[in-house]
């Protein structure tokens, strides 16, 4: 890898000043960035280590929970408040990566992780995300792991996070700091679809910093489940994953949250399928109908047609688990 500078500012202000300059790159846990640097995919001139910032806390917020951007994945997964209020998030985190990686990776870093598309990683291959207009290697290449929703002919990569699938389902909000102050962004608006600009993963500007995510209180804790289907039991990205959360009253669904991972360039929230579940009995027929609605508009490529079948299977299975029927 090429030589780079490394700084570790102590204040948010100095971080914001540093990242406003070209060639800089924030590093937190580094579990993805260091790999990308070794592969020559990213080659920043200066790393801005933000680990000195006080962003590690998990604290109650006004009707919800505030999770600092530097909270470790393992720390969040095992946090008592998280497990009690949002077990779905804990399950999703524990389904991701390996114990060693979860001990390094942060919430903000997890949001910022980049696709694992092999064509993005191999600098000898074409990739519009790595080098705009160089072509998409995956479109007609090895695309077993790739998107079935929201892809474009420029990019069919998927966003790999498990944590974010749960956060999308849980109506989380992202707190972002810039030099002009703070802003809030719905979690589902944070990541982008590739469109004509696959090089842009998300809506965080170059000179902005993720401070935290906040999750509003809900009634889903009793009936939620994260199901990740993958090629091996740990340290493998999802073929398809589903975050399912239900609010069930006397056998009837009062509210539902559903999101999928491994299927799109962002966590794929399934709002139409959620709506279809409201007022229905918590049974297989309702779940199957929701799954059918969820899959509308799905499009497969050469190697990933199985996702059209695995998608609904995973949705119904996750809903059955969430409803306590399995």
């Amino acid at each position: 890898m090429k030589q780079f500078q490394y700084i570790r500012p102590a204040t948010q202000q100095s971080v914001l000043e540093a990242i406003a300059k070209p060639g800089t790159q924030i590093i937190a846990g580094g579990s993805n960035l260091v790999d990308l640097m070794k592969h020559g995919v990213m080659s920043p001139d200066k790393l801005v280590d933000i680990n000195k910032l006080p962003l590690r806390g998990i604290t109650p917020a006004k009707s919800g929970l505030h999770i600092g951007a530097l909270a470790l994945n393992s720390q969040v997964a095992e946090d008592k408040q998280v497990k009690e209020k949002f077990p779905l998030l804990s399950m999703a985190l524990n389904a991701g990566a390996s114990a060693q990686l979860r001990n390094m990776a942060t919430v903000g870093g997890n949001m910022m992780q980049r696709t694992r598309c092999p064509y993005f990683y191999d600098t000898s291959m074409p990739c519009n995300k790595r080098i705009p207009n160089s072509g998409c290697g995956a479109l007609e290449g090895f695309n077993r792991m790739h998107a079935i929703f929201g892809a474009s002919d420029k990019c069919i990569a998927v966003y790999p996070s498990d944590m974010s699938v749960a956060l999308a389902a849980l109506d989380a909000t992202v707190l972002i700091a810039g030099r002009k102050g703070q802003r809030r962004l719905p979690f589902t608006d944070f990541h982008r679809l590739p469109g004509n600009t696959p090089e842009i993963d998300n809506n965080l500007a170059k000179d902005q910093l993720i401070l935290a995510v906040e999750i509003p209180d809900n009634n889903y804790a009793k009936h939620s489940y994260y199901l990740k289907v993958r090629d091996r039991a740990s340290y493998a990205f999802a073929l398809v994953s589903v975050a399912a959360a239900l609010d069930i009253d006397n056998g009837t669904i009062r509210g539902a949250r559903l999101a999928m991972g491994g299927v799109a360039h962002k966590p794929w929230r399934l709002t139409e399928a959620e709506k279809s579940l409201v007022g229905k009995p918590a049974n297989m027929a309702s779940f199957e109908q929701a799954a059918q609605i969820a899959m509308q508009g799905a499009k497969a490529y050469k190697d990933n047609a199985f996702k059209l079948q695995l998608g609904p299977a995973t949705i119904t299975e996750a809903l059955q688990h969430a409803a306590g029927l399995v």
Partner: peptide, 25 residues
């Protein structure tokens, strides 16, 4: 080991892409 035959290059030449069993398996 998966090769993209258009390029003749492996597309999973690392331990994240080339799967061997983990303890949980």
């Amino acid at each position: 080991g998966v090769i993209d035959h258009r390029y003749g290059r492996y597309v999973n030449a690392d331990l994240a892409g080339y799967h061997v069993p983990v303890h949980a398996d």
